[in-house]
Protein backbone atom coordinates (compact mmCIF):
# COMPACT_ATOMS: atom_id res chain seq x y z
CA UNK A 1 0.00 0.00 0.00
CA UNK A 2 2.75 2.46 0.96
CA UNK A 3 5.26 1.02 -1.44
CA UNK A 4 4.57 2.93 -4.60
CA UNK A 5 5.43 1.05 -7.75
CA UNK A 6 4.83 1.07 -11.44
CA UNK A 7 1.34 -0.38 -11.16
CA UNK A 8 0.11 2.56 -9.11
CA UNK A 9 1.03 4.99 -11.81
CA UNK A 10 -0.37 2.76 -14.53
CA UNK A 11 -3.72 2.57 -12.77
CA UNK A 12 -3.93 6.35 -12.51
CA UNK A 13 -2.91 6.67 -16.16
CA UNK A 14 -5.55 4.14 -17.21
CA UNK A 15 -8.30 5.89 -15.32
CA UNK A 16 -7.32 9.27 -16.74
CA UNK A 17 -7.23 7.77 -20.21
CA UNK A 18 -10.70 6.26 -19.89
CA UNK A 19 -12.10 9.47 -18.46
CA UNK A 20 -10.70 11.30 -21.46
CA UNK A 21 -12.49 8.89 -23.75
CA UNK A 22 -15.69 9.38 -21.81
CA UNK A 23 -15.36 13.14 -22.18
CA UNK A 24 -14.72 12.78 -25.90
CA UNK A 25 -17.82 10.64 -26.30
CA UNK A 26 -20.25 12.65 -24.23
CA UNK A 27 -19.35 16.29 -24.76
CA UNK A 28 -21.00 18.10 -27.63
CA UNK A 29 -18.84 21.19 -27.45
CA UNK A 30 -15.87 20.95 -29.82
CA UNK A 31 -13.57 22.42 -27.23
CA UNK A 32 -14.90 19.96 -24.66
CA UNK A 33 -13.82 17.18 -26.98
CA UNK A 34 -10.41 18.82 -27.20
CA UNK A 35 -10.20 18.73 -23.42
CA UNK A 36 -10.94 15.00 -23.59
CA UNK A 37 -8.11 14.55 -26.06
CA UNK A 38 -5.73 16.35 -23.74
CA UNK A 39 -6.74 14.03 -20.91
CA UNK A 40 -6.07 10.99 -23.06
CA UNK A 41 -2.65 12.33 -24.02
CA UNK A 42 -1.84 13.02 -20.39
CA UNK A 43 -2.80 9.48 -19.45
CA UNK A 44 -0.50 8.13 -22.11
CA UNK A 45 2.28 10.43 -21.00
CA UNK A 46 2.14 9.20 -17.41
CA UNK A 47 2.69 5.71 -18.80
CA UNK A 48 5.75 6.78 -20.73
CA UNK A 49 7.38 8.57 -17.84
CA UNK A 50 6.51 5.84 -15.33
CA UNK A 51 7.98 3.10 -17.51
CA UNK A 52 11.08 5.20 -17.94
CA UNK A 53 11.41 5.65 -14.18
CA UNK A 54 10.91 2.01 -13.33
CA UNK A 55 13.30 0.73 -15.94
CA UNK A 56 16.41 2.10 -14.35
CA UNK A 57 16.60 5.52 -15.90
CA UNK A 58 19.85 4.61 -17.58
CA UNK A 59 18.40 6.27 -20.63
CA UNK A 60 15.57 8.71 -20.82
CA UNK A 61 13.82 7.57 -23.98
CA UNK A 62 10.45 7.63 -22.28
CA UNK A 63 10.87 11.18 -21.15
CA UNK A 64 11.99 12.37 -24.57
CA UNK A 65 9.01 10.72 -26.22
CA UNK A 66 6.70 12.27 -23.67
CA UNK A 67 8.28 15.63 -24.43
CA UNK A 68 7.40 15.07 -28.08
CA UNK A 69 3.87 14.18 -27.06
CA UNK A 70 3.50 17.42 -25.09
CA UNK A 71 4.80 19.47 -28.00
CA UNK A 72 2.51 17.69 -30.44
CA UNK A 73 -0.42 18.19 -28.08
CA UNK A 74 0.25 21.90 -28.03
CA UNK A 75 0.40 22.00 -31.81
CA UNK A 76 -2.74 19.91 -32.07
CA UNK A 77 -4.55 22.21 -29.65
CA UNK A 78 -3.59 25.29 -31.65
CA UNK A 79 -4.87 23.74 -34.83
CA UNK A 80 -7.98 22.37 -33.19
CA UNK A 81 -8.89 25.73 -31.74
CA UNK A 82 -8.43 27.25 -35.18
CA UNK A 83 -10.71 24.59 -36.61
CA UNK A 84 -13.25 25.25 -33.88
CA UNK A 85 -13.27 28.91 -34.77
CA UNK A 86 -13.73 28.13 -38.43
CA UNK A 87 -16.52 25.78 -37.49
CA UNK A 88 -18.09 28.50 -35.42
CA UNK A 89 -17.69 31.00 -38.20
CA UNK A 90 -19.49 28.75 -40.68
CA UNK A 91 -22.17 27.19 -38.52
CA UNK A 92 -22.42 29.76 -35.72
CA UNK A 93 -22.14 27.05 -33.09
CA UNK A 94 -19.50 24.74 -31.69
CA UNK A 95 -21.92 21.84 -31.29
CA UNK A 96 -20.26 19.06 -33.20
CA UNK A 97 -23.63 17.45 -33.98
CA UNK A 98 -24.26 20.24 -36.42
CA UNK A 99 -21.10 19.45 -38.30
CA UNK A 100 -22.64 16.67 -40.38
CA UNK A 101 -23.25 18.84 -43.37
CA UNK A 102 -20.94 19.17 -46.34
CA UNK A 103 -22.13 22.66 -47.08
CA UNK A 104 -19.28 24.04 -44.97
Amino acid sequence: MFEIGLTHYLVVATLLFVMGIFVMITKRNAIGILIGVEMVLNGANINLVAFNRYNGMSNIDGQIVSLFVIVLAAAEAALAVAICMNFYKNLNTVDVDHGDTLAG
Binding site: I31, A50, R53, Q63, V71, M85
Partner: peptide
Amino acid sequence: LLLANFIGVIQLIVYAGGTLILLIFGV
Protein backbone atom coordinates in the same frame (compact mmCIF):
# COMPACT_ATOMS: atom_id res chain seq x y z
CA LEU B 1 7.67 12.18 -8.18
CA LEU B 2 8.85 10.08 -11.09
CA LEU B 3 12.14 12.01 -11.15
CA ALA B 4 11.20 13.56 -14.50
CA ASN B 5 11.68 17.13 -13.40
CA PHE B 6 12.12 18.52 -16.85
CA ILE B 7 8.97 16.90 -18.19
CA GLY B 8 7.06 18.15 -15.16
CA VAL B 9 8.18 21.69 -15.75
CA ILE B 10 7.50 21.47 -19.46
CA GLN B 11 4.07 20.14 -18.65
CA LEU B 12 3.43 23.23 -16.53
CA ILE B 13 4.84 25.75 -18.96
CA VAL B 14 3.47 24.31 -22.20
CA TYR B 15 0.28 22.64 -21.11
CA ALA B 16 -0.90 24.74 -18.21
CA GLY B 17 0.63 28.01 -19.37
CA GLY B 18 0.08 27.69 -23.10
CA THR B 19 -2.38 25.08 -24.29
CA LEU B 20 -4.89 25.69 -21.55
CA ILE B 21 -4.90 29.43 -22.19
CA LEU B 22 -5.44 28.65 -25.86
CA LEU B 23 -8.42 26.50 -24.92
CA ILE B 24 -9.89 29.25 -22.79
CA PHE B 25 -9.36 31.68 -25.63
CA GLY B 26 -11.20 29.26 -27.86
CA VAL B 27 -14.04 29.04 -25.38
